[in-house]
Design a protein around this nucleic acid. Structure first.
Length: 291
DNA sequence: ATCTCTGTTCACAA
DNA sequence: GTTGTGAACAGAGA
């Protein structure tokens, strides 16, 4: 479900539990969402601890607890954080519940693509958190940093590069489409074709989309303005560009469903990658295995 | 029954 | 080393 702004919205939900003691932790250590994590240590350490602080960085979240516990949460595609009453009974896809005297903090993820991490450290956030690349709205997300990343991915299409969490942490499928639509650039433009000026424009537009999303979705889940943003129009086939009225295209690019306006984002053959978009929803059927 | 999906990671090919 | 592809993960909803 979530990208940068949605992640921040979910983080704020759990902020209801900051300053509160955790008197019980409900989890199944074998659940896939705990892969690579010592769930027993998590359970032991957080029971009786107080939730102190929360952080979001791109699609990653980190919750700090008393006693040196650092709880990492990644929601992937279908993860969700909720707050429920203290007597809430966990449902089928609730994999992790932090019980406090007056509420239950619930992690839900039907497909279990998401992941819970846990570290104990008195010296600040765990290594994996400190190694995260510069956040879009941080001072470290400089033009030079972006230029270097774009150079490294010069042969890839812009869509793929925007989805790369090592360069644009927090940007997901809809944000990538939004950034490209607002710039008027085709998703399959070769990244190496950008001029220095265009590279700065890309950085600036990515930051603007992040800021706008955080102001709306990140605060109360409302959509950004539908007449100047693509997001409201990109989900289904047959929608029209809010800028020019042309029917939007929806095809697979860089392995993901991609929506763009063929009029506002024309393909310039001189600057395209060789990859060609594939139609979505027209029955690409897998070969049936030989019985 | 069939296909889609706001994500990531791996193996493999070029 | 980089890039593209497809599969895998696993379920709900159209």
């Amino acid at each position: 479900m979530p990208e940068l702004a949605e992640v921040d919205f979910f983080r704020r939900r759990w902020d209801a539990g900051l300053g509160g003691v955790i008197h019980r932790v409900d989890l199944h250590p074998q659940a896939r969402v705990f892969r690579g994590t010592d769930a027993r240590l998590l359970e032991r350490t957080l029971t009786g601890a107080t939730l102190r602080e929360s952080f979001a960085h791109g699609k990653q979240m980190l919750f700090a607890a008393s006693g040196g516990g650092w709880l990492g949460v990644h929601l992937a595609m279908t993860g969700d954080l909720r707050v429920e009453p203290e007597d809430y009974a966990a449902q089928r896809h609730d994999h992790f519940v932090l019980r406090q005297p007056s509420r239950a903090l619930v992690f839900t993820d039907p497909r279990m693509f998401g992941r819970i991490r846990f570290d104990v450290s008195a010296d600040g956030p765990p290594e994996w958190w400190r190694r995260l690349p510069p956040a879009l709205l941080s001072d470290a997300f400089t033009a030079a940093h972006v230029a270097a990343f774009l150079q490294r991915r010069a042969r890839s299409p812009l869509k793929a590069v925007l989805l790369d969490q090592a360069g644009f942490p927090g940007v997901g499928n809809w944000m990538a489409d939004e950034i490209l639509w607002q710039l008027g650039w085709h998703p399959l433009t070769r990244t190496g074709a950008l001029s220095a000026v265009q590279a700065r424009a890309l950085r600036s537009q990515a930051r603007q989309v992040a800021r706008g999303a955080l102001r709306t979705i990140g605060v109360d889940w409302t959509d950004p303005p539908a007449d100047t943003w693509l997001i409201r129009h990109r989900w289904a086939a047959g929608q029209h560009c809010p800028r020019c009225g042309t029917e939007l295209r929806r095809e697979e690019a860089a392995g993901r469903t991609t929506c763009w306006c063929p009029a506002c984002q024309p393909a310039d053959p001189a600057f395209m990658t060789t990859a060609s978009p594939r139609p979505v929803g027209t029955g690409h059927r897998r070969e049936k295995p030989l019985a």
